[in-house]
Computed example of a mutant assay.
Amino acid sequence: MGDPARRPRFLLVQAFSLPPGSPNQFRAAEGGKEAQLMNHAALAPLLADLDWDLHPGPLAPHGDWPVETREEFAIAGVARLPIVREACAGGGYDAIVLLGGGDPGYMEAREIGRRHRIPVTANAHAQMHLAMTLGNRFSIIDIAETHNARMAELVVQYRMTHGLASIRNIDVPLPRPAHRDRPTLRGEAERHAAGEPSPMLEAAVAAALAALEEDGAEVLLLGCSAAFWLQAPLQQRLAALGWEVPVLEGYRCAIELARVFVRLGLDASGITFPGDPPRHRRRRRLA
């Protein structure tokens, strides 16, 4: 960032977009970037001093429903990489923020960003690392069994097993054909927005208390980005019960971590993400 007076420019990239008319839509698919960005009301203060664009993500190649399974995360991750590659090659952005709680394509996107010296952040990765600056152990409050499996693998991939207290499943999945006849996260979000009691919020409070009292958690994370609306009421409910514990949400953590990297002039290590060809060839590499 040569000109200190220039506002940093970020690109926020959704994990995927669903086709028009999908019965499983769970966020706004039309309108300006503010309307399409979930949690914009809470994010607006963080974005106020940035120039930012929002990419809707690739049209979902796996089907017309949100991702939850390993296969779907892998497909969505591959589909998102050309967007990252084009954004980095264009030279117009100071950072790329990958939205979506399961971080599809994140490590590969960091490799692309490293070639162009552009930091790339993502939700779960940012939450876990910030959690470990706030306490010794964290628990993830997550939405469904299949999504839990993805989060557990990310904990291992990000070398955070020493900090994980638990993954607590509240079992309110995203709208998908497999869950057509049961309550889903979309309906619970709408219920809460209308001021009605939400069983999902009550389940999140119960899971959070169990994580704190039984698992030894000191910080709480939200596993799914679409559960962003739980953050504020969950924080408030825990505080009312005397629990002074941070409740983190992915979008905000990823945006703020990207801001830190830009201000410090940092991007990922060239040893972690070597070039092709690498400038140095070490004789030994440890896992």
Rank of each mutant, 00 (worst) to 15 (best):
P45Y: 08
L50S: 00
C88S: 05
P61A: 01
I118R: 02
G101Y: 13
N123F: 11
D51N: 06
Y93R: 01
L98N: 05
E71G: 03
N39A: 14
G77C: 07
L54R: 01
L99F: 13
G92F: 11
V97S: 00
V67P: 05
E68K: 00
D49N: 09
P61S: 00
L98M: 15
Y106A: 10
P56T: 00
P104I: 07
P61F: 08
A60W: 10
I75V: 13
N123T: 14
H62V: 05
L54H: 02
R85Q: 13
G102Y: 14
A60Q: 02
E108V: 05
L46T: 01
L130M: 11
P66S: 00
G90Q: 12
A41T: 12
A41Q: 15
H40F: 15
M128C: 04
G102V: 15
V67F: 13
A76Q: 04
D51E: 14
L130P: 00
V97P: 11
E111F: 07
L43C: 02
L43S: 02
G102H: 15
L99G: 08
E86V: 09
H62L: 05
I118T: 10
A95M: 12
G102P: 15
I83A: 06
L81E: 09
H55G: 03
R114W: 05
M107C: 10
G57K: 01
N123C: 15
G63K: 05
L99Y: 13
P119N: 05
D49K: 02
Q127T: 04
D51R: 09
M107F: 13
D103V: 13
N123I: 09
L47S: 08
P104H: 11
H116V: 03
G92D: 13
I118Q: 04
L43P: 09
A87G: 06
A48N: 04
G90P: 10
I112G: 04
H55T: 02
G102D: 14
T121I: 07
I118A: 02
A48I: 07
H40M: 14
R110V: 13
W52T: 00
V78E: 13
